[in-house]
Structures are given as structure tokens and as C-alpha cells.
Design a binder for these strands. Structure first.
Lengths: 256, 256
DNA sequence: TGTGAATGAATGTTTTTGAATGAAAAACGT
DNA sequence: ACGTTTTTCATTCAAAAACATTCATTCACA
């Protein structure tokens, strides 16, 4: 990413949040702390933001009283396997695609990486959480409307299905709850399964993201047959992935 | 390929993307880095683009610095007044309503309070940020789908309008950018104004939330006449609120 | 064949970056 | 309140990336 592009994103984030830590910026934009520090010092020199200990804030803001709506994300269980799967998934992109991003933590690991893709893809998602994060990173995003399921922050239901039915995707990345040789891809929730099915039907190519623990599991509602999708997973000795090779396509992250 | 033809393509790409790296241009047009460098230097000399380290960008407008940001800056001021306004707004609820919550920081101050209302209301919003927070607080929420405006994290456009058109609200809370005795409620963005108008039209009772700095200001796009809404604001000596009393309804927070 | 523009590669220089270090500041525990 | 621990900061250094410059080759056209 180019310097001015990165600094524009920093400015946009500050405008939206009023105040943001150097640490968070650094993690969102995937650069070192040193580089982020230099960027912020430069922006402060130009008089665009105010430098404070630990981060930056808007010039006009009064430091005395902070609202700090910090209820947001804490689930930064940065499991290396999720990160690895996300990297493999991103590698399927060329840039500029119209893609669907399913709700869930595994697909969520793709978000910061999506902010790096050029040209920026158009991301459609049913997760309000993902949508908010992507917008913060200045990634063009369309959110599927409807009732938000409180357990997953994802929209489901008729309104969502209707809106989805009018769209078509180059690529979709679906989170998986359970993968089985005969049952295929399944998930516990009936409504979420319906959304996932619809997405797959409207995608030129559908990828299912799953860590090793999801294999040889079955859940209630059918999402897809193995033949319909490509599964992106991690290298894993426990699961006998070879038997899946015959029924579906597999992308396995590097053992690095 | 002829030189001018190649340079036209470069210009078209920059026009479309706003900013592009020398590496990407070089790969797209299948020439050496040296040649691409020469092209870009020439275009920069002619004043057609701005040369930056690693690539080129449009020279005209800075992507993030839009006119409305100036007004958005003001909303970052006066945190306690926002809290006071939010409290007054919540006091209008009885519990169990179907309500609309507009995007913006002032309406955002209502979020934690909404988590306390019993029975829980159904909250409809066009802000993916608000939707995410409300879902975290287990408040039933419906999000309006559509393209997310990156500067405000709110959905706008045709899809959003369509979906809104099918809903009706007991109460709506709208954020205001500018309030004027003769111009009424206005806002800088045309698309957001359209959404706000639609919401007001579908609400039994519409409230506009505004701190003192919003009064006697005018912006580009009309949202509503003063007669259509009730304004919730703060006690404020500077603004002559009395003159507004005759044109609209006012709810003013306690001086506590 | 000669000429000049355009190109790609090679060269050394400048800018950008990430890591390392110790100093300063904030947060913490008692 | 006080000393300790953690975090943030400024500075420095080396590696990587981007840069300007030079030079030899190619190609169109006289």
C-alpha cells in the first residue's frame, strides 16, 4: 500500500472514531509500530490531527471527557490457524472482485487483509460487525439488510434472502460449522443455512473456510454438497484429508 | 502499442481509481518500470496527475476531506451535552416501541441507554456501527441493507430506500447537521437526506436530535420542515430557542 | 545506412521500513 | 504515597523498496 493511501485511511478512521490508539491503527493497517508512529507524527506536523500519548485524536476534541464507545471487539483470539486459512483465502483473489463474506470469526480474520487488496474488491456481507470494520478500513461494502441475529450479529430471514437474490458474486467465502464426507457442509441454524445456500447458488466460485476441528462433524441443516464448493483449511495430521480430496476441492495453507 | 495510447490508458486508470501504484501500472501495461516511470513523470510535468512515492494520484480532490467533515468535526465537541440529549430522547420512550435510530454520534449516545429500556424496543437503523453495538447489547435490531457510505458507516441508496419504504415506525430519532428557522432541517449529503426524509414520512412521531452548535446553520439538502418534527436539544443560553418555539416543538434537557 | 526516439537493464542514491535500544511516561500493586 | 512493572516514546541502524541517471539496444523512417 502506498504511503498517501495509508495516511488517508488513518485520517478517515480518526474522523470516525474521534480518537484511536497507535496500536489499533498498526494492527488494522498491517504495518510496524515504527511506521505508524512516523505517519502520525507527519499528520500531526501538518496540523491534521493532534498527537496524544498512545495515539491520536481530532484537533477539536476536548480531552477532558471521553465517550469512548469501546464495547466493540475483544474477541481477538488470534489463532494462527485462522490466520493461515484467511491468508490462503485472500490468495484466491486478484483484486477488484465482487465477493461475499459470510459472518463468523474465521471469515473475520480476512478483514484486515481485505483492506490491503488492490484494486479494492466490493465486499457484500450479512454481518454488521464485519461491515462496520470493513467500512472503517475504507473497503467498499454492501450490507444485507434484515433482522440481526443477536448471537452472531448476522442478518437472516426473508428480507435478507430477498436482497441476496438480486445479487451475483464472483467469489464467496462461507464459514463452516461442520463438514462430513457424506453429509457435506452443514450448520446448526436453519435460517443461516438458507442464506448460505443462496449465496453459494449466486456465486461463480464458492469457498468454504474451516479449521481442522470442523471435519467429520454433522449438524442439522444442509448447506451444500462437497462437490459444489472448494474447502480452504489448514495442514492437519489428525484429519484424513486425503479421503476428502476425491469428493471436493481442497486448498491447504502452507506449513510455515 | 503507441505511446499516447499507453498514456491515455494510464490516465483512464488514475481517473477511475484515484490513485495507483507504479508497479501495478507496469504490470497492467506490460512495459518496464523505467518506461512507466518516464510516462508518469511526463504526465506529472504536464500537470495532469500528481506524482507520489510509489505511484501517482489525482491532484484535484483529496478523497477523505469532504466538505461535510467540517460539520462532522463540530459534533465531536460537547460530549456532556450529547449525553443529556440522549437522556431526553430516551425519556420519550415507554418501552416496546418499534423505533428508528439514525446514524451519527448524537444518536449513538442513545445506544447504551437503549439497552436498559424494558420491554426492549425493536430498533431499526441504517448504521452498521450502531447495529453491531446494539446486537452486542442484545437489543433486537434490524439493519437497513445497501451500500455502506464509508465516511459515516451508514447505508444509503436505492436498496436502502426500498427496504425502508416497507417499514413503519412508532418513533424515529434523527441526527441533525443544521437547523434554521426558515430552511428547516438540512444536511450536506443528498443521499442521506433522502433516507432521513423517508424515515420521517414513515414515523408516527419524528424527533430530531441536535446540540446547540447546530442551530442557525444551513446545509445543502433539505430533510424536513420544522413543523414536521420535534427537536430535542440542550439548555443553551447562546441560541435564542424561543424563536424556534413558535415554529416547532422543542424538548430541552434538564439543567442538571 | 544514419539518425533519433523509445525502451529495458544496470548503476548508485534516496526514501521507506522494521527492529533494537534505552529513556520517559503511564499504570499498577501494595 | 511509593517503588515496581508495563507501555509508549525517540533515536539509531540495517535491509528493502523506490528513485534518478546512465548506457546500450531496438526500431521506425528518412
Amino acid at each position: 500500500m502506498m504511503i498517501s493511501e495509508r495516511q488517508d485511511k488513518i485520517l478517515a478512521l480518526i474522523q470516525k472514531r474521534g480518537r484511536i490508539s497507535i496500536r489499533e491503527l498498526q494492527e488494522l493497517l498491517l504495518v510496524s509500530v515504527s511506521t505508524m508512529r512516523r505517519d502520525l507524527d507527519k499528520l500531526a506536523d501538518e496540523g491534521l490531527v493532534k498527537r496524544i500519548h498512545g495515539g491520536v485524536e481530532l484537533l477539536s476534541q476536548h480531552p477532558t471527557l471521553q465517550p469512548e464507545i469501546a464495547i466493540a471487539d475483544k474477541t481477538k483470539l488470534n489463532q494462527p490457524s485462522k490466520q493461515q486459512i484467511a491468508l490462503t483465502a485472500i490468495a484466491q483473489l486478484q483484486g477488484g472482485e465482487t465477493l461475499y463474506l459470510d459472518a463468523g470469526t474465521t471469515t473475520g480474520a480476512m478483514i484486515t487483509l481485505l483492506g490491503q487488496v488492490t484494486p479494492a474488491p466490493l465486499v457484500v456481507t450479512n454481518s454488521v460487525h464485519h461491515a462496520s470494520q470493513l467500512a472503517d478500513l475504507m473497503v467498499p461494502v454492501v450490507v444485507i439488510g434484515g433482522q440481526v441475529k443477536l448471537s452472531t450479529n448476522a442478518t437472516v430471514g426473508m428480507t435478507a434472502a430477498e436482497q441476496l437474490g438480486q445479487l451475483a458474486f464472483d467469489v464467496s467465502f462461507i464459514g463452516a460449522d461442520a463438514i462430513d464426507l457424506t453429509a457435506g457442509i452443514t450448520t446448526p441454524d436453519l435460517e443461516e443455512a438458507a442464506i448460505k445456500r443462496l449465496v453459494i447458488a449466486h456465486s461463480r466460485h464458492a469457498f468454504v473456510l474451516a479449521d481442522a476441528s470442523k471435519f467429520n462433524q454433522r449438524a442439522f441443516a444442509k448447506v451444500a454438497d462437497l462437490e459444489e464448493v472448494t474447502i480452504i483449511t489448514e495442514p492437519n495430521s489428525a484429519t484424513e484429508l486425503a479421503s476428502y480430496q476425491t469428493k471436493t476441492q481442497l486448498k491447504i495453507g502452507d506449513q510455515s
